[in-house]
Design a protein around this nucleic acid. Structure first.
Lengths: 189, 189
DNA sequence: ACATTGCGGCTAGGCTTATTAGCCATCAAG
DNA sequence: CTTGATGGCTAATAAGCCTAGCCGCAATGT
């Protein structure tokens, strides 16, 4: 039995391919093993268990997304940066809806070990730099930005928008709401 | 063996209690059966399968939420109605985070048979009535409102907001963004 | 070259969960 | 009192996660 040359990264590759194709529910160890050309228990040599694999997928997606956002915001500031950030965010989700949906299921909520989340947050904070917000104001503004962007992403990826109206137009309106409302963060305690 | 006097509604009651206590992952047929004082296969006399049970839970939650929103919006219009709606939405999620989180997992996305979703949408449209929006504008505005509210709800329920800043203040800022941006829906095609 | 050691495969098997099949008691209606 | 539907049950299957324990390959040291 020749070695399959597996690695944690290769296992995550297979897992990502699965959620791309079939959504979060398609992520089973049997399916991952099949795609990697290996028997199911062999996966445990590279990954502690299913929960950890989900976590690794989340980190992978977060990193991809963060890179996208970083590129999009590069060299921009103020409203321009926020708009670019929001458009880049949605474009990632539209391209990889299953991948994005798989992120929720991991339910980590430990930002300590989640360095990837911190990096994404840092990019958001950087984009908000132009608004002269300080301390708590920045936190509130970032939460609103995340809520808007994530809410739209989740609803769109889940097929929650049934009507045929143009989604681009809806999203541009959302962007306008956020951009228009960010200055209002000044003075929020 | 005396009859347990079960019914579809009673099964959903047990399911809701479970997701309240342990989140969506706690919803297993074995647990529901245990709580209902019955063997697992007996549940199939009242519910087609786990997927249908999840769907029923979703409908139940959607109905509760819709009732809340209806009460909150009653007798209000314009900005006032939207603010009341958004606050009521969040208050429901804060009270029942597991219940709200359980809603996503059902992944129905068939608005046709989902009359409960239509009723909730109708309330949103009614609250937007005061903005003199027509046709597509209304759709875009409703999507933005839903995105903001759902995004914040999901993130808060999942513990996505790690920092200690006041969540109320963040949400009030989000409300201000939406209320301030809704008039901008005029002219969006 | 060759022994050693550890890594990365494997099979076997246990546990939980969803689901089906088929049996039997209860209860309501005639 | 019979009858038939309804709502329980046990048994059994399949799929999924996970552990235990075996064994070959390959890298390393002598």
């Amino acid at each position: 039995m020749p070695r399959a040359g597996l690695s944690p990264a290769a296992v995550v590759d297979a897992a990502v391919a699965l959620v791309d194709a079939g959504g979060p529910g398609a992520l089973t160890l049997a399916a991952v093993a099949g795609r990697a050309g290996v028997a199911t228990p062999s996966l445990y040599k590279h990954v502690r268990n299913l929960a950890e694999l989900r976590q690794l997928v989340t980190v992978r997606v977060l990193e991809e997304l963060t890179e996208r956002l970083g590129e999009a915001a590069l060299g921009r500031s103020g409203d321009d940066a926020v708009r670019a950030l929001m458009r880049a965010y949605r474009s990632y989700v539209v391209e990889h809806p299953g991948r994005y949906a798989a992120m929720d299921q991991s339910a980590d909520a430990q930002p300590e070990d989640n360095a990837a989340g911190e990096r994404l947050l840092a990019i958001i904070y950087a984009a908000l730099r132009g608004y002269a917000l300080e301390g708590s104001e920045l936190v509130h503004a970032a939460r609103c930005l995340r809520s808007a962007v994530h809410g739209f992403a989740v609803l769109e990826a889940a097929g929650g928008f049934g009507l045929p109206e143009d989604l681009e137009a809806s999203y541009e309106l959302l962007i306008a709401m956020v951009v228009g409302g960010l200055p209002g963060a000044r003075g929020v305690t």
